[in-house]
């Protein structure tokens, strides 16, 4: 399809982009930031979005790339998914990000779509928001007034609604390194390789020292179980201290299973052609168990 007309602004720098965005919003224009365009362009072409202007930051040299910054890894917003998943820094230091990114759509999308764009789109069916939530990432946003940081727990306000204010552009994300002892898994359930997650589970699990197999700490967040990504706090709490021994051994109740059965607590699963809420709740429980097992195993 063909999008409705819009003004196209391609700033030469991030500063200029912030200014253009701020000016446009000040003028009452409905302006959108275009990066990789993998979410926005389909909406434009379907004529479900009618921005009066696009500020295209997709060709800016910055913020792009992945940087090890000690206690965290900074991922520039314009880094493409493909660059993220191939980055050795990402794979070694924040592997959950690499695992989830590798499941995003298809190679064509991953070569154009950006890390920041995917997060700023705040689609709860996207794979990265849940990862950001599970890892307590920090979002760095910039406007003409300067930079500020938004914790992941506050970034995803509602369906397609990030906590960006008018004139703000997502610059990058600080992804905390969780340190030694953590295992990770992203369990994505989708109907075809390229389709959105029906439900996804981002899991990070730290087991006790000395092969004890007891969960010390867990971070779980769910994809597409509500208007925003959902942190499965109940599971995290219930997992603490749970024995990680293989399921069903010595007839003891599987406490991992019991904990994961609480995965849908607090979720508000959507309804679409790929699953109703009840099915999604069920999937969340099953997949959380698998994700936790895989992360800890």
């Amino acid at each position: 399809m063909i999008s409705a007309p819009f003004d196209y602004i391609r700033p030469a720098s991030l500063e200029e982009a912030c200014r253009a965005l701020g000016d446009a919003e000040e003028a009452g224009d409905d302006v959108k930031v275009l990066a990789g365009g993998q979410s926005l362009l389909p909406l434009l072409r379907l004529r479900l979005a009618y921005p009066s202007a696009l500020v295209d930051i997709g060709r800016l040299p910055e913020p792009r790339g992945v940087e090890d910054r000690g206690d965290h890894v900074f991922v520039g917003a314009l880094t493409t998914h493909d660059e993220v998943m191939r980055s050795s820094v990402v794979r070694e230091l924040i592997p959950l990000v690499a695992l989830a990114t590798a499941t995003v759509a298809d190679p064509a999308v991953r070569h154009r779509g950006t890390f920041g764009g995917s997060l700023a789109h705040a689609d709860p069916a996207g794979d990265l928001p849940a990862v950001a939530l599970a890892l307590d990432c920090v979002f760095v946003v910039r406007s003409v007034d300067g930079e500020r940081e938004i914790p992941a727990s506050e970034f995803f306000v509602d369906y397609l609604e990030p906590a960006l204010e008018p004139g703000e552009i997502l610059v990058g994300v600080r992804v905390p390194k969780l340190g030694p002892g953590w295992g990770f898994h992203y369990e994505k359930f989708h109907r075809t390789a390229q389709s959105w997650a029906t439900v996804g589970v981002a899991a990070a699990v730290r087991l006790g020292e000395g092969g004890g197999g007891t969960v010390e700490e867990a971070r779980i967040a769910l994809t597409n179980m509500g208007p925003t990504p959902v942190r499965a706090h109940a599971v995290e709490a219930a997992l603490r201290g749970a024995d990680f021994a293989p399921s069903g051994s010595n007839g003891a109740p599987d406490r991992i299973r019991e904990a994961c059965d609480r995965a849908d607590e607090g979720s508000v699963p959507p309804t679409d052609l790929h699953g109703g809420p009840e099915y999604r709740r069920h999937l969340a429980r099953v997949l959380t168990y698998r994700a936790v097992r895989a992360a800890g195993g």
């Binding site: 379907l46 004529r47 479900l48 069916a125 369906y159 959105w196 959507p270 309804t271 679409d272 052609l273």
Partner: peptide, 14 residues
């Protein structure tokens, strides 16, 4: 129309 035809369950939730 298009909004009804756009899947992903947006309509229903909203």
């Amino acid at each position: 129309g298009r909004p009804a035809q756009f899947g992903r369950g947006v309509m229903a939730e909203v």
